[in-house]
Write a protein that binds this DNA or RNA. Structure first.
Lengths: 97, 97
DNA sequence: AGCATAGGCAAGTGAAGACTTGCCTATCAA
DNA sequence: TTGATAGGCAAGTCTTCACTTGCCTATGCT
């Protein structure tokens, strides 16, 4: 479960999606598709991005909230702190910002 | 080049190798093999570990120094700071510990 | 010299995963 | 209620990658 975040980060497209959501939170699938194409030159199908979002969500890196026919995606960078406490600052008592 | 660190971190064995080297720096290939088997229950061939070390080195996460017939491996966690500045603390002026 | 140790190179196999295609469901507006 | 929009599901393809196997080089010891 905690190991899923590394699998999630291993794909460049998923990292671009994270970049995109950090810059502008709460985007829908179609918005993310459009911005990936426009800003990063990635010609991806909607399904491809949808699957990437599923991976990111199961890793806990984003959270999706449904609202009508829209589904908004919010980032959650908190799981990334594991990387810091695992290798960068191993002696940190697990809860220090 | 900077993106290689994510590919390097995507494999569980490579993460265990990092754990091992953070705990005890400067190990040889055979030492790492032995400790992966003993402490993590991984039955890997020497080549497998060697290839993992190559990936970690090309990602800049470890540095190898040859000495006689031994080759010692040292960790370098500095590339991991990119993850922090990319998503966790994006406004950090790129050089603040 | 000869043998053992420490490591490297390269081709082959098998599985994981990124992406597509085609079809289906749900919400909203006219 | 019809049509358009936003999203989901389930194969199928094709590439990447982890690992093995077999052989080769280099250093050190006796």
């Amino acid at each position: 479960m905690a190991e899923d975040i590394f699998k999630a980060l291993s794909d460049p497209t998923r990292r671009h999606i994270l970049d995109e959501l950090v810059e502008r939170d709460g985007q829908t699938l179609f918005e993310i598709c459009a911005r990936l194409t426009a800003k990063h030159g990635l010609g991806l199908s909607r399904q491809a991005v949808s699957q990437h979002l599923a991976v990111l969500e199961s890793a806990g890196l984003i959270h999706a909230r449904r609202q009508g026919r829209y589904k908004f995606h919010d980032v959650n960078t908190e799981p990334l702190e594991q990387i810091v406490t695992r290798w960068l600052r191993p002696d940190t008592p697990e809860g220090t910002s």
